[in-house]
Computed example of a mutant assay.
Amino acid sequence: MKTRAAVAVAPETGLEIRELTLDEPRPDELRVKIIASGVCHTDAIVRDQWYPVPQPVVLGHEGAGIVEQVGSAVSGFEVGDKVVVGPSFCGQCEQCLSGHPMYCVDFYDRNFGGKRGDDSTAFSTDDGEAVGSHFFGQSSFAEYTNLPAHGAVKVPHDAPLELLGPLGCGIMTGAGAVLNVLRPKPGSSVVIFGTGAVGMAGMLAAKAAGATTIVMVDIVPERLEFAKELGATHTVNSKETDPVEAVQQITDGGAEFALDTTGVPPVFSQMTKSLAVQGHGALVGAAKLGTEAPFDIGTLLVSGITVSMVVEGDAVPKEFIPRMIALYQEGKFPFDKLTKTYRFDEINTAFADSAAGTTLKPIITF
């Protein structure tokens, strides 16, 4: 069938909306009509080739839509089901079987390879040129796409698909890092570096978990003020104040938990130094491959801190996405306040607004 899709063709270049041919779904796949897809920082850095995903390729990995066709080997889905789509994983390796599919041994190839395991792509041009697909197991910047059924999560029929796509990556990353990895107890202290969508989602999750001291660190005054409106108890402008000193003062010696959503080496160092004795910090911000960050092993050795590298919130999407939806419905996780919708033909404006920080979480609607 024919479908319109936004195609990444070169670094630092706007996506091109093209009409492509979509092949038949494989036996283990679903064909999904995408209703909306979030725009994530990872889409931008892959467009710009921080990670060497072959181009041309259809990006997009925060899709939500309606099942149009069910592969012959798929069970548990029917035409008309509403789904939110998460990353792809094998389901058979030790990490998948132990409940950590975001660390699947095949995670990189399945999500950044730009093709299926048999080297085929779902998209092609009229003259037969292959166009990369299956980005994060979905390539959701398309009106229709074929995707592995195991990555799809059924949601209720009254679920607002135009809002839920980011639960499959950006919102899941921030909230999952807090709820699944850091696991702050009620009454605890949390500091979060970065007030983008991932950082704000982490903040909302910390609040839902009962943390009573939540410090947000950034350099943009407007976003820090917005963080306060959403529930931060303290904010620190790290352009004006040493964030390590500020956090230690606010928390009387250091935060019990910390999250770095920036992937910026000096910020990572600040996060490690902001932790209390035996505190736990997590890094979720993506950096270029090969990026190294300073880590004061001499001073920090006696602190007993733990630092975790976290992918996709270490979530099991079929368990965690419904949990986030339940928290949202209870009014305890208002991630909708982070979003702004754009038409499909405004996709490059959405990317630009995200890069400029004027929109925390753009959502493209079809």
Rank of each mutant, 00 (worst) to 15 (best):
Y51N: 07
Y51T: 04
P52V: 00
P52I: 04
P52N: 04
V53E: 11
V53I: 05
V53L: 13
P54V: 04
Q55T: 12
Q55E: 04
Q55W: 02
P56F: 03
P56E: 01
P56W: 03
P56A: 03
P56G: 04
V57T: 13
V58A: 13
V58M: 09
H61Y: 07
H61W: 09
E62N: 08
G63W: 08
I66T: 06
I66M: 04
I66E: 04
V67Y: 00
E68A: 14
E68N: 12
Q69D: 15
Q69L: 15
Q69K: 15
V70N: 09
V70F: 05
S72D: 05
A73C: 15
V74C: 14
S75E: 10
S75G: 06
G76Q: 09
G76R: 08
F77V: 00
F77Q: 01
F77K: 00
E78T: 12
E78L: 11
V79Q: 04
V79H: 03
V79K: 02
K82E: 00
K82Q: 07
V84S: 14
V84Q: 09
V84C: 15
V85Q: 05
G86Q: 06
G86L: 06
F89K: 00
C90P: 14
C90N: 11
C90G: 05
G91C: 05
Q92L: 15
Q92V: 14
Q92S: 15
E94W: 01
Q95E: 08
Q95I: 02
C96F: 03
L97T: 10
S98G: 08
S98N: 10
G99L: 10
G99E: 11
G99N: 11
H100S: 11
H100I: 03
H100T: 04
P101C: 12
P101R: 10
P101A: 10
M102L: 12
M102P: 01
M102H: 05
C104R: 05
